[in-house]
Write a protein that binds this DNA or RNA. Structure first.
Lengths: 252, 252
DNA sequence: CAGTGGTCTAGACCACTAG
DNA sequence: TAGTGGTCTAGACCACTGG
């Protein structure tokens, strides 16, 4: 089979073999961009892995890894004996390990934060179990109102390990929590999330400008660093008319 | 560094090099089982990839791929210059491309289904856009009440492409929808999901045994086959006191 | 410094699909 | 039968980490 390339001639020029960016990543990210921009149309069939490798001067495993990245993201479909095709479906970015602050910024909104309270409290049994610390340990509890373009959107209630009790309201109004943690060299590696729904409680309806007892979308998250230490536990609630969680699932 | 193995001697005996199951998968699934069962404890450090390969008679890439599977699932953490460790955090199974029926069965519940209605309807503009077919095309619309151990749990409202209009209520009361589709050779490759919340509408509160206007957890899904054809579009709503979505997120 | 994972190469054989 | 992706091998060099 001789197929002409489905991508523009110049898409893969200037690959950098000396810099820190892996070749497979340079390939996959340029390919992703071309697909998302429609430069390579939905349904288009890619060349086979070996000839791509020859044309780019790369080995097959490298090409294969680049393609695999996009298969995992749901942008490409591979079938043995058939080939590789661009998926027809619209693909949403997955639920990622980022904060709401970063999500909003990425989508072009202007997030603002009102710090409702910062307290140092002694962990009761429930909280201690969540954070996996001894009951009675002093921790900090942060409650924030997150707005997008001035509209209240979510109430963020976070419990932080004791070592972060010096984070100030000023920090939190300027930056997202995860941003602040990263600046301190803390990297979140793994998080367990639970998404659910419930009625508003207490002052939540006032803060979010909703009727009393209306539905809220909730997300509970416990986040760990590479060593398995709990960094943060959060209970967040969102206005369901303004926020939802989108995912693309790919079968393996 | 000489480290003794952290897993029992017999864990990787009887690897099958002739059968259809890939070696890397045999390794990763046995390793996963051992970790989930606590045979390999949280925090344990694995040998390096090369010596594992030597001991098992495998090449490094094969061992590496097996480990990578578990890193992606959040069971292992790898750090350059350090090694590979079993994660300390409890890891929940990810939101998968399965039906509620299968989820419930897996967790040990007995799912039952009451078919509320099966209609053939002409797709209006909104539905046609969802299913990516021409408006006016005849499709089937299925509404089911899903119970777990007799308790009503969710209302499942599905739109199916025209070719599936012969699915009967008997089929649906005995099997999950995805099961029925698989039996017909249909494989769901990709799905877009949106999770949100809203109040009950119409008869939903009666069906789910809730107060009128209480919160519901909702999941909208559009599912595609390998060719990008829409197979199914569903709007599901769940009792939030009985159901939630759990995920483990892993940073890359 | 030695040890680890991260990347890359250049082959090989097989299973599956289409025509 | 020819072409594709799926798997596997046996090496290589590098970047990062710790002592």
């Amino acid at each position: 089979m001789s197929t002409e390339p489905v991508w523009p001639e110049e898409l893969f020029t200037d690959l950098d073999r000396t810099g820190p960016v892996p070749l497979y990543f340079q390939i996959s990210s340029r390919l992703e961009r071309a697909i998302r921009d429609g430069v390579i149309p939905a349904g288009a069939r890619l060349e086979n892995e070996i000839s791509i490798g020859e044309r780019l001067g790369l080995s097959r495993p490298t090409v294969r890894r680049a393609i695999q990245e996009l298969v995992d993201k749901g942008l490409l479909v591979r079938r043995r004996g058939i080939g590789t095709q661009v998926v027809q479906a619209r693909v949403s970015r997955p639920v990622e390990l980022t904060s709401l602050h970063e999500d909003l910024t990425r989508v072009g909104h202007t997030p603002t934060t009102r710090v409702l309270s910062i307290e140092r409290v002694q962990a009761d049994e429930e909280v201690a179990a969540q954070l996996r610390i001894a009951p009675g340990t002093e921790i900090s509890r942060i409650r924030r109102l997150r707005c997008a373009d001035g509209t209240p959107m979510a109430i963020l209630d976070n419990l932080l390990a004791p070592e972060f009790s010096d984070i100030t309201a000023e920090d939190l109004e300027r930056h997202g929590l995860y941003e602040i943690l990263r600046a301190r060299g803390i990297t979140i590696k793994i998080a367990n999330q639970t998404i659910g729904a419930r009625r508003t409680h207490g002052d939540e309806h006032e803060l979010l400008d909703l009727a009393k007892g209306s539905p809220l979308l909730t997300m509970d998250r416990v986040a760990f660093d590479h060593g398995g230490r709990v960094i943060e536990a959060g209970h967040h609630c969102y206005r369901p008319d303004l926020y939802s969680f989108e995912t693309t699932l790919v079968s393996r």
